[in-house]
Design a protein around this nucleic acid. Sequence first.
DNA 1: TTAACTGCAAACCCTTTGCACGGTG
DNA 2: CACCGTGCAAAGGGTTTGCAGTTAA
Lengths: 134, 134
Amino acid sequence: MTKQFRDTKQRFAIKRAIAEANRPVGPKEILALASKEVPNLGIATVYRNIKTMVEQKELDAVNLPGQADRYQLPGQQSKHLFICEKTDSVFNLDLNLEDLKIELPQDFKLKSFQVVCFGEITGKKKTKITAALK
Amino acid sequence: MTKQFRDTKQRFAIKRAIAEANRPVGPKEILALASKEVPNLGIATVYRNIKTMVEQKELDAVNLPGQADRYQLPGQQSKHLFICEKTDSVFNLDLNLEDLKIELPQDFKLKSFQVVCFGEITGKKKTKITAALK
DNA sequence: TTAACTGCAAACCCTTTGCACGGTG
DNA sequence: CACCGTGCAAAGGGTTTGCAGTTAA
């Protein structure tokens, strides 16, 4: 028997919070956002739902160097990231990397790679960024 | 008054362990290696020395996506990494990226970037890898 | 001698788990 | 009415801190 999931207000609130954030967010931030809708929401519920949603592929985990994973909706997925060192917020980068290839020693089998950019944002924030390589 | 540091056998053992590992290593691994030399070494001492050494720039912190920081000697520094998904070990990559530039929106000021590669290692391990981009 | 360093244990922080209760289907 | 999901609290794992004793200089 495959497990059947139920629709709860907590689950809705958590998913909406992540959707509206529109960028990779962490458990605490999710709790803060979703708590507006469901006051007594517990952090354990957030963790459990994140886990389930990632397994169900309703959510993508975003691995960041030097900090804990954040989460976002699959449609927003892009491995390449821009991390604002001031605000600690993370943005997706659409890098034009199709024709970029990395050559490694024979022993090393490359499965994927990720470009992580660090810097600051001076103006208003955007959530989806197209960048170019030259 | 600036703090004056002392030479202890613990400090030596920790630094030697990191030097001999010759790749980015984490606190637990450092403890295991250095304990051969100093049996009763405590994990707190490892953390304290790591922190001090990073501040003194005797050590570099290596930020990894999805896992805790590791540490290595400054000479071995390279931002670009190869992570073996099987063994969970990390290797430095010397990528030829001098003429690679990333174009971002005006608002975004790029300070640095990092390429992280994921894959497997089939043969014997190396600690310093030169890779190319094409 | 004295001030930094160490080991141990306790304290923290983040994440996971156990359990009784409440809510979905 | 099954049984999954929730909230709370406790338990884990990793990192930091307090403290008394130890050691480098």
